[in-house]
Write a protein that binds this DNA or RNA. Structure first.
Lengths: 191, 191
DNA sequence: GGTATAACTATGCAGTGCAAACTTTGCAAT
DNA sequence: ATTGCAAAGTTTGCACTGCATAGTTATACC
């Protein structure tokens, strides 16, 4: 993965790849810029040419994450499917998922991040609208918000290992998704 | 807040107080141990006598947070009140709240943390049991989990400023709590 | 009143992000 | 082809971090 020419050619992407790789191998440790540079056989400050700050790098990674999440969501139709995809994504991409919703990653700072984040949300909103055609605009908004919150909450708590010992022993995406969908859709509307 | 004697006397508590103070003033920046020591007029490594690692200090702070959260929850009765208290706590104690659910703070490592975390959860569980007396054990478990997830999800998303621009403009605890309670309690059961 | 020990200091190390100044390279215009 | 220039990468260095280690001081206990 080291470079042999002076110009790496695609250091920007390589950095993101490397960061993602590290994050996948140990999701609890945010990789240092220096370690990424070292792994790519490049000087410690080379990344600065592509990302002004570390935070910028992480934000770029978060954008990647949202894109992939959106892709995963758009592959399903049902509410339960969406929930399962969301929770599954969180569990399979724990490091990036944390980054996507971490404090450092501010939505207001990055235009691209805001857009790609909105895309994912709109997918959910559309499904809610389909499920509750008679609801008012406001009801739909609130239901969408609540739906997102349950799913996001479950995904987060499960990923951080907060459910294991007390709240739930079965933390598989499918199981949690069922619980979430039951709560949002209600028993009546599903029929 | 500086010491004049060689032995500070209550450095442990002072460190926690100082950390909480910093966290309250700028919730997005986790204070450094060194800065806390400096603020208390104590050498950089003095804290090590009381907390083996920084993570230990943060965990102790998280315990404080759970205690206070439990106290806030126990002051109300209704589901909606619980939700409002929870969300309000998150917004008013953003720094500590993040710490309580951050990756570094592992439940499995600290006995005390596990207990105090469970206490808060049990309060919610009791209320759910009261609301749904006819539900099976399993149903109650699932509803409790879902309830926690919505509330926690809303609290987290609101605190991190993830709702503002797209999902909800009104992020006041009372409003979010109503949405959460509606979802959990359903319209039928509330009557 | 001595002494073990908990609480604190001093020093130092490895790592971190980042700024600043410099060097190499590719590309584009002449 | 030559030159000029901007982009990409290097070197150096600074301030800060957590933490290990070794030495110092005061306090509590017998």
């Amino acid at each position: 993965m080291a470079k042999d020419t002076y110009h790496h050619g695609s250091l920007r992407e390589a950095l993101l790849d490397a960061a993602e790789d590290d994050l996948r191998q140990s999701p609890e440790a945010v990789p240092s810029v220096r370690s990424l540079a070292a792994k790519l056989g490049v000087s410690s400050t080379a990344p600065q040419a592509h990302f002004r700050t570390k935070s910028d790098l992480m934000t770029a990674l978060a954008v990647r994450g949202f894109e992939r999440l959106s892709a995963a969501l758009s592959e399903t139709e049902t509410l339960r499917g969406l929930a399962e995809a969301y929770i599954g994504f969180a569990q399979d991409n724990l490091g990036i998922y944390r980054l996507m919703f971490s404090t450092g990653t501010r939505l207001d700072g990055d235009q691209q991040l805001r857009e790609v984040s909105r895309t994912a949300y709109d997918t959910l909103r559309a499904e809610i609208a389909r499920l509750f055609p008679n609801a008012t605009e406001r009801e739909r908004n609130e239901r969408t918000l609540a739906a997102w919150a349950v799913v996001h909450g479950l995904a987060t708590l499960a990923s951080e290992g907060r459910l294991s010992s007390e709240a739930a022993d079965d933390t598989r995406p499918a199981t949690l998704a069922r619980i979430a969908a039951d709560m949002v859709g209600g028993v009546t509307e599903t029929a």
